[in-house]
Every structure is written in C-alpha cells, then in structure tokens.
Amino acid sequence: MTTTTEPMSLAAIDAAQRPRRFGALYVAEHQIRQMRAYAWTIVVAGVGSPLVYLVGIGLGLATYLDQQVSDGPAGSVSYVWFVAPALLATAAVSVATEEFTYTVMAGFKWRRIFLGMNASPVSPEQICSGVVLAVLARMVFTTLAYYLIILAFGAVGHPWAGFLMPLVGMLAGTAFGLPLLAYSASITEDKGQFAVVQRFVFTPLFLFSGTFYPLATLPVWLQWIGWISPLWHASEVGRTLSYGSSGSGWPTWAHLAVLVAMSAAGWLMARRTFVGRLRG
C-alpha cells in the first residue's frame, strides 16, 4: 500500500473507516427494514405454525400411537416430546428456504438492490454477511417463539437445557441455508429452481430425517438421507437437550460438528459467489 498526503485521498481513507468496520451491519439494517413489509407473515408463520402442528399432533396423531417412539433416561417418552425438537428445527430451516432464495434473487436480479449497495463503500463479502445476519435475526424470533410455545404445551423434558434448542435450530437453519444461499446467489435466471428446492430437497428431508419417527425405523438404504440432513442432526441434539437421550447412538458433538461443517462450507461458498457476481 502506498502512503499519501493528498488531502482528497486522506478524506477518502477517513470516510471509509466506518463502512469497512460496520458494513455488514448496515446491510442487515436495510434487510430487516425490508422485512417490515412482510412482518405480519413472519409473525403469523412463526407463532401459527407451531400451534397448528402441536394441536394437530398432540391432540390427533399422538392419541393413535400405541407403540412407544423413544426412550429417555427416565423411561418412555411421549410422542409430542419426541416431535417437538424436530419441529422447532424445521421452522428454522423453512425460514432459511424462504429468505435464502427469493430474497437473494430479488437482491441480484428482480430489484437489484445488491447492485445499489455494491456501489457504496460496503464490500460484496459484507453484503453477504449482512443478508445472513438479518436472516439470523428472523430465526431468533421464530425459534424462540417456537420454543416458548412447545414449552407451554408441556412438550419439553428439561425446560432450562431446552433453552439451547433455538440455538441448535438456528444451526440447522444455517447448515441448510448457507449452501442454499451460495446456490441462489449463482442463479442468473429464474426457471423455477426454488420450487424444485422446496419440493425435492426440503420436503424429502422433512419426511426422511427422523422428524416423525426414529431414523432407525427406515431401511438402512434410506437412512443416509438423515445422515446428510441438518434436520436430523439438529433434532437429535434437541431431543438430547429435552429428555437426555436421542437414541441414535451418535455423540452430540458429532451431530454439532456436521452442522458446523455444513454451515462453514456454505458460508465460504456464498461469500465467494457474492464476490464473483458483484466484482467483474
């Protein structure tokens, strides 16, 4: 780097200090402001969806089950206890499927607001980080609301340990969402890819990740879906937090390691894609 005494250069160096440091927060601030436009949807989905699932499963499905679904250290576990941590993780993942797809497409293409940010002092990496921060903020709300509701339904074994469940759920959200963000950021033309992700990635994961029954129930040749699914790993950790044991045989750290590794890989790819797209 060269040293300069030119006043206009020094003024520029001074003016860029705050954006260099806080750029990602400015982007997040903007994204969160935008969420206000659909704040109502966020609240209704965040509170309504756990209510619907818990009432439907707790009062309906669970009453038909004779077979016990899982064991905790204190004996048999009720079906709602088993399902609740998985539903919470699913809520975080579904926020990710919404926000890391259409919002990203809007930023690069439909409304091009990322291009506007790009002309300002913030960097492509900061734009990527800011988008993620805003989504994390929405996930905090969604997972916390979910947790309080399952708590109210008495669907948690250890309420205090269970307070870590939202964090684990968010980790599932990033493990699924950040690779998806990298993919979305690489799309230049919308040909319905997001509907495909929804139907052929998210939905199968939801159904085959040991969400509604232990993964071991499935034939071995289908169990791999669970092993690569952030939902399964987060559900298992959530179950351990709630009633002390998940029964999968995997240690908790291994579940967490998978989630962290997927998040980190997605994060690196997403940043790289943003740079490639915004710097030509």
């Binding site: 780097m1 003024a11 954006p19 300002s120 002092p121």
Partner: peptide, 9 residues
C-alpha cells in the same frame, strides 16, 4: 487496494 475509500467519495 482502496475500493471502499474511493466508493465512499
């Protein structure tokens, strides 16, 4: 080397 600095102006 000075992208943010230039863009700030």
């Amino acid at each position: 080397g000075y992208g943010p600095e230039i863009r700030s102006q």
